[in-house]
């Protein structure tokens, strides 16, 4: 019976496509599971607050790498957030022209910049210029990845602000720039903050841009113009050594990093849940 055969195909395709979803989720679960199992035993206060010890010596931790990650990501935010947000404001409020469309297009294309290339740019642009690996070079490299993301998410959040809100403000005799700065940005702030936090989550885990910009350091940070340790690079360094106790540290570092990033990712969905519900 034809009707039956079609029903069966429909059912089979539903199951097949559902299986795709199930299989795609397996790696994620496996990663979360193995990182937790292998990392949990090594994570303690010392691990979070001490600097690494040489191979063979017990103890030591990633305190300096955690510190360094905050510093480098902080520098990236100082550059990336203002540039990205203001460029996004331009695109939405003034960008209805050829220049605006071109910027939008370039920002879109820039989101595909390979992260290793961003690192190379940090190297040729900052490291070569100052003659040393540095926290600043790392921050610049990360900001290259951050700017296009923040630009586009800001533009998109601003576009969601209803025209009627802008009109209400203009009709009160508020100049356009104040309308944009206080009313439009204020209305879109939860979307913009979400975009910014997600971009921070994205760059916090980046390793490739930092390999030859911020490089690494076995000690606490000693200046923005000096090499600095970061979690992703430290995890990588530990992972590719042949020493099992450093592998354990790599897992523990991975656990800390993944928790930070998942908190950012899942957290933004709750924290910035609109106060007034637009």
């Amino acid at each position: 019976m034809i009707w039956n055969k079609r029903k069966i195909i429909d059912r089979v395709m539903s199951i097949l496509t559902a299986a795709c979803v199930a299989i795609a989720i397996i790696p994620l679960l496996s990663i979360l599971y193995t990182v937790t199992i292998n990392g949990i035993s090594a994570v303690n206060i010392d691990f979070l607050t001490q600097i690494p010890k040489p191979v063979g010596e017990a103890g030591g931790g990633l305190g300096n790498a955690i510190q360094g990650t905050f510093i480098v990501v902080g520098i990236a935010c100082l550059i990336g957030l203002p540039v990205g947000i203001l460029a996004g404001v331009y695109l939405c409020e003034y960008g209805q022209n050829k220049f605006g469309r071109f910027v939008s297009f370039v920002a879109d294309v820039l989101t595909g910049t390979p992260s290793i290339v961003a690192g190379m740019f940090g190297y040729t642009f900052i490291v070569l210029y100052f003659g040393s690996f540095s926290a600043i070079a790392g921050g610049v490299a990360l900001s290259v990845l951050m700017i296009p993301i923040v630009t586009r998410t800001t533009e998109e959040s601003l576009r969601l602000v209803p025209g009627s809100i802008k009109e209400a403000s203009l009709a009160l005799g508020i100049p356009k720039w104040k309308t944009t700065l206080y009313i439009v940005l204020g209305t879109a702030r939860s979307g913009i903050i979400t975009g910014a936090l997600l971009s921070i989550a994205r760059i916090s885990g980046e390793t490739a841009p930092l390999l030859f910009t911020s490089f690494g350091n076995m000690f606490w940070a000693n200046g923005l113009d000096k090499p600095i340790s970061t979690m992703p690079v430290q995890i990588y360094t530990y992972a590719i050594t042949p020493f099992p106790d450093w592998h354990a540290k790599a897992w523990a570092g991975a656990l800390v990093l993944i928790i930070l990033i998942l908190i950012l990712n899942i957290g933004v969905r709750f924290v910035t849940r609109r106060k007034y519900g637009v």
Partner: peptide, 18 residues
């Protein structure tokens, strides 16, 4: 001009985050 001449729109449009 817009400060001297106020306007009320078709759909109520209070500022949503205020």
């Amino acid at each position: 001009i817009r400060r001297r001449i106020g306007m009320v729109f078709q759909k109520p449009n209070p500022f949503p985050t205020m």
